[in-house]
């Protein structure tokens, strides 16, 4: 038996973590000041899912990875200039507003519709990957809703590892309290896996990979359909940044012990 996989990764984009974020209220609701002008990255949790998907697909010949991403297509294109160099995938862009303030049900609906419409997708081989969390506002339910809409009830969250067996079944490690993992066994696809960080390092940029991906990414971006995300009655009375003072530093020449000691000292002082 072959373990050919069809892996669909759902991944949004988020402002680069070093940027200063300031909420503002626009005509369509809350957003972030200058968000379109700020450098963006693939949402880090979802990026882990993509790298795990690419790694898994490379181990099982005949497998394929789709990246379904919802965001302004011009911004998606910019993010793809880096992401496309890191893994082989086919992009399925959905042109929609940026930001973490969209209704999770509407977002999940757009993603599920796009996945259901993928030509050649075999449900018996389907694994839906995404981030367990998000670097944007993060409702934390979008991936589960996508699974529900597609009728996939085997769902795992906080995943750090998947081991695929020859019979198509797999074992999943999900994060639980106390730094431990819960081990689950699933008889096979389809399933939804919301990834934590996984175990893989971020792949380095490889322009050859990027050029190969771009042959499909650029036409896909040009053809991307505009999606309207309805608010479904969702209303924000106010938005604000967390009260904690954010003091970002880029630190060099520190050992893990020293970093840990500084964090402990900081917690003690607060």
């Amino acid at each position: 038996m072959t373990n050919e996989l069809h892996i669909v990764v759902c991944a949004g984009i988020a402002p680069d973590p070093l940027q200063t974020l300031e909420p503002v209220t626009g005509a369509t609701g809350p957003g972030l000041k200058n968000e379109m002008m700020l450098p963006a990255i693939l949402d880090p949790w979802a990026a882990s899912a993509l790298f795990e998907a690419a790694n898994l697909a490379s181990r099982f010949p005949g497998s394929k990875v789709w990246l379904v991403s919802l965001g302004p297509k011009a911004k998606l294109q910019q993010v793809m200039m880096t992401v496309a160099q890191k893994a082989i995938f086919e992009l399925v862009p959905i042109d929609a507003p940026i930001g973490g303030f969209a209704d999770a049900h509407a977002t999940a609906g757009a993603l599920a519709d796009a996945i259901a419409a993928l030509p050649g997708l075999d449900r018996e081989k389907l694994l839906i990957f995404g981030g367990w969390e998000s670097a944007t506002r993060g409702a934390g339910v979008t991936l589960q809703l996508v699974g529900e809409r597609l009728g996939i009830t085997d769902q795992f969250q906080g995943v750090d590892q998947i081991d695929l067996h020859d019979d198509g079944s797999f074992e999943v490690l999900e994060r639980v309290e106390g730094g431990k993992h819960q081990v689950s066994r699933c008889i096979g696809a389809p399933a939804v896996l919301g990834w934590a960080t996984g175990n893989l390092a971020e792949p380095r940029n490889n322009p050859q990979t990027g050029m190969a991906n771009m042959r499909t990414i650029m036409p896909a971006l040009q053809k991307a359909k505009l999606a309207t995300l309805t608010a479904n009655g969702l209303h924000y009375s106010s938005v604000s940044l967390p009260k904690q003072q954010r003091t970002t530093r880029v630190v060099k020449d520190r050992s893990p012990d020293e970093i840990a000691a500084e964090i402990v000292a900081w917690i003690g002082a607060n």
Binding site: E22, P23, V24, T25, A27, K33, N34, M37, P39, L241
Partner: peptide, 17 residues
Amino acid sequence: MSASALTESTTMHTLPG
């Protein structure tokens, strides 16, 4: 910090990206 209203502006707000 509460949200402020978006205003039409001709001032550059971020470094050229």
